[in-house]
Design a protein around this nucleic acid. Structure first.
Lengths: 145, 145
DNA sequence: GATATCAAAGACTCATGTTGTCCTTGATTA
DNA sequence: TAATCAAGGACAACATGAGTCTTTGATATC
């Protein structure tokens, strides 16, 4: 059991979009280059995010993508649910077994994870990234490069 | 992202094994029938559980499987880790990105789920099942069957 | 010791889902 | 009208899980 790569790409892309100035857009071309992906492939993931209401796209010359929700309201879970879907990880394999107690325990544990992910916001990661980058630059300067 | 069917079968089998009297064994044939599986297929899952130290097998005529740990010490996580492996659900897709903050958040949330699953014990499900079964029988009797 | 019953394990097929590409369509700006 | 962008369908490649078949080897019973 693993998260899909698409979720991985989506999370990284979203964090990056959050570091951009409000109302500025960026094309899939640039976004794809950063992660060594083909634009067409990343495009599909972005379309999913757009349908999920997390980002919005504008076609045409000055078009591209930008975040379409208040920047501090986007949780990890929002992105994951949009890309992976929101069905449960465990479904009882037995027939005629509604109310399976194993399933109940499994789903309850999963819910703990989801609750946590719904309280972790991408904007915090974006801020940390920006801080980290400025530190790196400062560090390089100090090393005499 | 989903749990494998093997995990599903393993959990159900383990719960059933816990309902059996101590030191009694049961063959893969019977276990497979209950879940409508082929014996050879379930056998592979059981072998995994045996290698993981959760059950033990004895070949030969009066052989079969039985639980090989104290019955109240087997957690959901024990079974899951044995069948699914214990690697993390999320691994950062970017190169040269040790300490990825997204990965950190994702893994922390996953850990919450695992902590929960490590504190839920199969023996409790087994007890509930036994109670449920006796209730069902009682219920049927009351209905005049 | 022969036989029946059990698990272990390798090789293999099949189904499914993810990943990724190619190409066309359609919208927007200049 | 041309250039630049996203959307989307069709398809190929790949990985993995699910499941079968067959052989091997250990144990108990007669």
């Amino acid at each position: 059991m693993k998260y899909s790569k698409a979720t991985n790409y989506a999370l990284h892309t979203m964090v990056y979009l959050l570091t951009l100035p409000r109302n500025s857009t960026i094309g899939v071309q640039s976004l794809a280059e950063m992660q060594n992906l083909s634009p067409t492939y990343l495009s599909k993931i972005l379309t999913k995010l757009a349908k999920g209401g997390l980002i919005e796209s504008t076609p045409g010359v000055k078009g591209g993508y930008k975040v379409s929700k208040p920047k501090d309201e986007i949780s990890f879970l929002d992105v994951i649910k949009t890309v992976e879907g929101d069905s449960n990880l465990f479904h009882c394999s037995m027939d005629h077994n509604e109310g399976c107690m194993i399933e109940r325990v499994m789903t309850e544990a999963e819910q703990n994870m989801k609750d946590d992910l719904d309280n972790k916001f991408l904007i915090d990661i974006a801020h940390d990234m920006e801080e980290k980058n400025s530190n790196t630059i400062k560090g390089k300067a100090n090393e005499g490069n």
